[in-house]
Design a protein around this nucleic acid. Structure first.
Lengths: 156, 156
DNA sequence: CACTAAATAGTTGCGCACGACTTAATGGTG
DNA sequence: CACCATTAAGTCGTGCGCAACTATTTAGTG
């Protein structure tokens, strides 16, 4: 069926290949979606999407954070976060209130329900870690390479 | 400002951390978006989005492919591809026609314009490769780890 | 103090991404 | 042949993700 484009074709070094399978960027794109897909059933039980889960990870670490700080932590724009936070607020997991000392800023605070979700989420990282099935060394290498990549790609 | 959660906290081995920065999955998610963002200005000049570019990569390799085969190559559902292919067709880059031998199937064929775009796209992988700034060894390691990860995560 | 520039969050429009579903065609099976 | 499960593509609804823009508040400057 799909043996046609398998394996390792030769690539000139002067000009990079246009072959899909040669490209790290596609591996990255596919891996990110595959991992998110693996999260889905686990997060469904918590009533969360993956980005919502990431927001809660940040808030469980440090509550009462501004949208700006949240965006810095997750590398997301306010145009992504604002509606997402509204949905989490509608679901009763957090509250948004203008800061009195700076009315431009909005403090995101977990409700008791949002804070309580943390216990139910504790098993998630381990389940995902198991599913990823990398050795601790591979995991560390991957994280290190991805951070280097992000640093390089976002500079300038 | 953000030195508060930096660095390397200790993590118990029995139970994985809920810290954002400890998680490979977040590194993956952030890296994927960062790389796509780096592509954006290059692809804007070609009038393409990143997923559209991926579709063309496949078609430049092997024209007259079905939606199903395209989905297998990119790991995307027909519900994602159908509207995307419609947009590419509206932009004059490809045509979709039912196969006569199997009327369920739709053959995607590049137009001359779509095929011609390949030359203008040749510089893209190199520009991205440079921006990613990994050594060939690091690039190979990353691809290898990501493929292993995808294989593990999607099994069962 | 008046006025402008910067910062913060939000809105809008568009294009994915995917689950759930629909429609149509095909391939068995008895 | 009739029937039904399977396959292929597409539609619909929801939630990101981001560029471009807006509204409001704050900071800085003469």
């Amino acid at each position: 069926m799909d043996g046609t484009t398998d394996g390792s074709r030769a690539t000139t070094s002067a000009e990079r290949s246009l072959l899909l399978d040669d490209q790290l960027c596609f591996a990255l794109y596919a891996a990110s979606r595959a991992v998110t897909a693996r999260y889905r059933p686990l997060l469904d039980e918590l009533g969360l999407t993956y980005p919502q889960y990431l927001v809660l990870l940040v808030l469980w670490e440090r509550d009462s954070i501004s949208v700006r700080e949240l965006g810095a932590a997750l590398q997301l724009e306010s145009s992504t976060l604002s509606p997402l936070l509204k949905r989490l607020e509608a679901n009763g997991l957090l509250r948004r209130e203008r800061r009195s000392d700076d009315e431009r800023s909005v403090a995101i605070r977990l409700t008791d329900e949002g804070a309580g979700l943390r216990d139910r989420a504790r098993a998630v990282p381990m389940a995902i870690g198991d599913a990823m099935g990398l050795t601790p060394e591979q995991d560390a290498t991957a994280k290190q390479l991805l951070r280097l990549l992000v640093a390089n790609v976002t500079e300038r």
